[in-house]
Write a protein that binds this DNA or RNA. Structure first.
Lengths: 139, 139
DNA sequence: TATTGTTATACTCTATAACTATA
DNA sequence: TATAGTTATAGAGTATAACAATA
């Protein structure tokens, strides 16, 4: 159950960093997905494993804080694209850096060669996973 | 960010298995901690990173389903131990097996030697972590 | 006085079902 | 008819603050 413990550790880091920025874990995850670019509600609900109705409220709350915006889709008047505002982009970047720093600090326990071997192995396991990535960068 | 993606994958597995058993992720985590033995509310709140007041409600709901029980502490009349009922123990075991099976299936992507090397490396990283383990077993 | 656990309150998160508007 | 997104509703999860009972 090493994977379960690793997962809980990462979740804790994620939650703590989010809290430092006045966000919930779910709100941070929304920002992370959007940092790759604007996304419609339906696709967003698939990315986040959420019902569309649940997503409506989440986006409402984050929009109320000025971090995202609903932009009407010119080609389909039913649809919209959710995009990061300037402040939202800034926030997403900061959270990404903070999480990365804290996880890299953990990885520093291992020699570089071993660290890369682990990363490569995990990447292979993940290759079976069709879930969209929450983060744009590597590492 | 491989760790973040692994974490999300594990969380998804955990949530899906929980749902199959009519539980939420948080309720399953409670059962997992208790599968090591009875624990008081204060210690439980530390294990789960929850305020005591939040824990009261969580334990209430799981107790209402007959999976756990509050047992008065004979030595301290303020305190109680939360313990699994027979049904709760059964449920915790089933969830543990299901999660283990699905994660092992993912690990099967890798040759055995590499798999063990990864497990050992991650265990070393986790050695810095003081969070109590959610599961009793190894793997 | 300090600690154990609960209550009161307010929010966030989530799903199900029913709905509106557009395609 | 099907799809995109919202609203209504109900329940679960969470934190803060105030509290009761015991140590």
């Amino acid at each position: 159950m090493v994977l379960v413990r690793v997962s809980r550790l990462v979740q804790t880091v994620f939650a703590e960093v989010s809290r430092c920025h006045g966000l919930t874990t779910q709100q941070t995850q929304l920002l992370c997905v959007l940092s790759r670019g604007p996304v419609g509600m339906t696709e967003l609900s698939r990315s986040l494993h959420l019902e569309k109705s649940s997503l409506t409220g989440l986006v409402d709350r984050v929009e109320r804080r000025g971090l995202v915006e609903r932009v009407p889709d010119a080609r389909d008047r039913r649809a919209c694209h959710v995009t990061l505002t300037a402040e939202g982009t800034h926030c997403a970047t900061e959270v990404h850096q903070a999480v990365t720093e804290r996880l890299d600090a953990l990885g520093a326990e291992l020699p570089a060669a071993e660290r890369e071997a682990v990363a490569a192995a995990l990447a292979r396991v993940l290759s079976r996973d069709d879930t969209p990535r929450p983060f744009p960068a590597a590492s």
